[in-house]
Design a protein around this nucleic acid. Structure first.
Length: 288
DNA sequence: ATGTCAGCGATGCGCTGA
């Protein structure tokens, strides 16, 4: 079985490239991030014509995650248990005190719901016997931004949920996506450029590595160990021609899946030419 | 050239997010 993860950075802007990736790599499953569309805008027909079922969650023009599969797609979950939301802080305000109160016709609803709903950053489905999650970890924006705490909490809650999924003997789970963490100094063109920024902080790196004691192995590193091997290049400042990239797309899997991995490929060619995403696909070949 | 890109709202660009 061949499975891949790709932050496509707008599915509608790159549907032709997406279909080409499915065909080029003969993919059975593709975990997609940053579809940037609502469910009703998702190009279901294009996937169906190519022989793929799809599951998607997209609430607005931001985020959006999907799984396409031609080996079955069941038990879809559009968030993970405990997945936090992000409450955009009001300048000088106190949370969502101005939010609409629940209608009086909903007596069971709490008077004030202070918990923001999850964003469209996680979707899970069982494909060909593997529990696949397509994940778009929050960016964090800046170390002093509320989004950074959100990112850390999001990863911690995901790890807590993932620990439970891995607990069953022989569980086949794959956590695929854009982790927005640079785990090692050699995963970036020049770590000095990230001093004081997100993606390299000790807390982010610890939150990333915490998936190991939770029962997971990061299989892309195992199979593509070369330093300065990137999966993302910024659109700005000619980052790709200068190879100023980041390695931030990874696959944490349970040991049963990790033992099945026969190879991993980073599709660097996909970053070339007009209309490329800023991320490239990461492809995993699993033994039957 | 801070050498970009996508989506949105209301345009013929400014804003947001990355």
């Amino acid at each position: 079985m061949r499975i891949a993860t790709w932050n496509v950075n707008s599915l509608r802007a790159r549907i032709d490239r997406t279909l080409a990736v499915l065909e080029r790599w003969d993919l059975d499953v593709l975990a997609i991030q940053e579809t940037k569309c609502r469910d009703e805008q998702f190009p279901v027909g294009a996937f169906a014509d190519a022989g793929y079922e799809v599951a998607h969650t997209g609430l607005n023009q931001w985020n959006g995650v999907a799984i396409a599969s031609r080996v079955g797609l069941t038990d879809v979950a559009t968030s993970f248990p405990g997945q936090p939301g992000f409450l955009k802080p009001e300048p000088g305000g106190h949370g969502d005190q101005d939010a609409e109160l629940p209608a009086a016709s909903a007596p069971s609803a709490p008077l004030l719901d202070l918990e923001p709903p999850p964003e469209a950053r996680a979707i899970g489905a069982t494909c060909g016997g593997v529990r696949v999650w397509s994940l778009y970890v929050p960016h964090g924006r800046a170390l002093d931004d509320p989004h950074y705490r959100y990112k850390l909490g999001w990863l911690e809650r995901l790890r807590d949920a993932a620990r439970g999924w891995a607990a069953e003997e022989g569980a086949q789970v794959a956590l695929l996506g854009d982790w927005n963490v640079i785990p090692r100094d050699t995963d970036v063109y020049d770590v000095a450029d990230f001093a004081g920024k997100t993606h390299v902080s000790p807390l982010e790196r610890a939150a990333f590595e915490a998936f190991a004691p939770a029962g997971y192995t990061e299989v892309t590193r195992e199979h593509v160990p070369a330093e300065h091997t990137y999966t993302y290049w910024d659109y700005q400042r000619l980052a790709f021609p200068r190879n100023k990239g980041l390695r931030i797309d990874f696959a944490w899997t349970t040991s049963t899946v990790a033992q099945r991995v026969r190879g991993v490929w980073i599709d660097r060619e996909e970053r070339k030419g007009k209309g490329a995403s800023d991320h490239v696909p990461v492809v995993l070949e699993l033994a039957d």
